[in-house]
Design a protein around this nucleic acid. Structure first.
Length: 429
RNA sequence: GCCGGGGUGUGGUAGAGGCUAUCCCUGGGGACUGUGGAUCCCUAGACCCGGGUUCGAAUCCCGGCCCCGGCCCCA
């Protein structure tokens, strides 16, 4: 009976793995050069970690289960909460800001679609210890830089949940009401937002929402001043000052943005700047969001100090859909050592072949026959494999203490010593 | 959770109630016992699963599984 792959999961064949490896290395490389350090957290955590962050609703889209000790566990649906948990447990005493990055698989029980899987990979970074505009700007610039290195056409939307939260607080809305409003605003449901508020405040919130939507539509920084004049934004708004500084810093970094104050990211824990990046080339259909992030204060929720943080996560699988590399970069050319067996000299030939392969393996992908094949069959294999060179080792070569090096692309071949062989191959790989 | 389109060897396909299921590619071996890519031969390998209708099902019906895409949500 044939066993099917579990729904929403994938097998990665060698060629695809090479592509993913190239992407991964570029992302890692840039994060390292921006001064971030890699960390790794467990694949599963206590389920509360995620319900505390995102609410009970997330249970239905998590792989959660009880272990034999009746612990309530879950495969991680994302990595921000685990990273903050780790920080509180292990990294509290590191100098601030603590800058980390991660690359890991996450699991969500959702309907698979284009570039959406039940097991998927996220690459993300967190700045723990700062949610200041300087941190926000660096983080966004880093995300952009990575996307650029992958050749992704990206569109950045920047918002700030603080603007709206501040205003709602002035209306004496409680946190839960604020969260409800944020979610509805994210969906663009103006009427529902108004209905969710006290009747007494409906006129006020309607005025506020209309003002905010003007602000969103204008996408112009000058609109802030007007909004302030109309009392859409408080005159002493921290959020506004933060946002204005962020936008200025983004210009210094050379990052283009679109103001989008409608972003609430659907998550209650974001407290300040929020951003989303979309793929602009139309290669992803409905699932075109490739990155999301913002400023948040989660640490306190998990029993730590109330430390501000800023982070983002890429959907690596979505990036892979967009990212393209030359096919030739994905081919892994190597050398094949061909023992030419002979009844009289079988063992000597194999010994020599293995020794030569061992030396070549110091610096180049090297094959050696594992199927007791004839000379021509071994060469056929080398060809099918797109290997570049064959090193023929037979009793004729052994007599002269040499090997035959055959260039599989040109068909030229020569007899040379093993030392010369190594030197020549080394120069080519 | 809801909606639409699909599932035939490794991959790509033909097939529309009736012979041993077509073709291309692929794997293994050989023609070729010291020289590959061509050609030829041999060989391996499939109707997603379960039930139903029928003398007879890859084909029609039902359910499930999986894939592709859309809504919602998100990465």
């Amino acid at each position: 009976m044939r066993i099917e792959r579990a729904r929403g999961t994938r097998d990665f064949l060698p060629k695809e793995m090479r592509k993913r490896r190239i992407m991964e290395e570029r992302m890692r490389d840039i994060a390292e050069r921006w001064g971030y350090e890699e960390i790794r957290t467990p694949t599963f955590e206590r389920a509360e970690l995620f319900t505390q962050k995102s609410g009970q609703a997330i249970l239905k889209e998590m792989y959660e289960f009880r272990d034999k000790g009746d612990r309530h566990l879950a495969l991680r649906p994302e990595l921000t909460a685990p990273v903050i948990r780790m920080y509180i447990n292990e990294l509290k005493m590191t100098p601030k800001p603590t800058k980390v990055y991660y690359f890991g698989n996450c699991f969500r029980y959702e309907e698979p679609q284009k570039a959406r899987y039940r097991e998927f990979w996220q690459f993300g970074t967190e700045i723990i210890g700062s949610d200041r505009p300087e941190a926000q700007a660096e983080l966004i610039a880093l995300a952009f830089h990575i996307l650029k290195s992958l050749g992704v056409k990206a569109e950045l939307h920047v918002g700030h949940v603080g603007l709206i939260r501040e205003r709602l607080r002035v209306l004496h809305a409680d946190e839960e009401q604020i969260n409800t409003v944020m979610r509805l605003m994210d969906k663009g449901e103006r009427e529902a937002v108004i209905e969710s508020m006290d009747e007494r405040k409906r006129d006020e919130i309607g005025y506020l929402l209309d003002g905010l939507s003007d602000l969103i539509d204008s996408k112009d920084k000058d609109a802030f001043k007007e909004a302030r004049d109309r009392n859409i934004i408080a005159s002493d708004s921290n959020a506004l000052q933060e946002l204005e500084l962020l936008l200025e810093l983004l210009e210094y970094y050379g990052v283009d943005y679109t103001l989008n104050l409608g972003i609430a990211r659907g998550l209650d824990y974001y407290t300040g700047m929020v951003f989303e990046i979309y793929e602009a080339g139309g290669k992803l259909g409905a699932q075109n969001q490739i990155c999301g992030g913002g400023s948040y204060r989660l640490a306190k929720l998990f029993g730590g100090d109330d430390i501000p943080s800023t982070g983002f996560a890429f959907g690596v699988d979505r990036l892979e859909e967009i990212f393209s590399v030359d096919d030739k970069d994905l081919e892994r050319r190597g050398v094949v050592v061909v023992p030419i067996r002979d009844k009289d000299a079988d063992r000597e030939v194999m010994k020599a072949a293995i020794e030569i392969a061992s030396r070549l393996r110091e610096f180049v992908p090297t094959h050696i026959d594992l199927m007791n094949r004839s000379l021509s069959a071994q060469l056929k294999y080398a060809n099918a494999h797109h290997d570049s060179f064959a090193v023929l080792v037979g009793k004729n070569e052994l007599k002269e203490a040499k090997v035959t090096l055959r260039n599989l692309n040109t068909g030229e071949q020569e007899k040379i010593s093993v030392d010369d062989l190594c030197d020549e191959i080394k120069g080519l790989f």
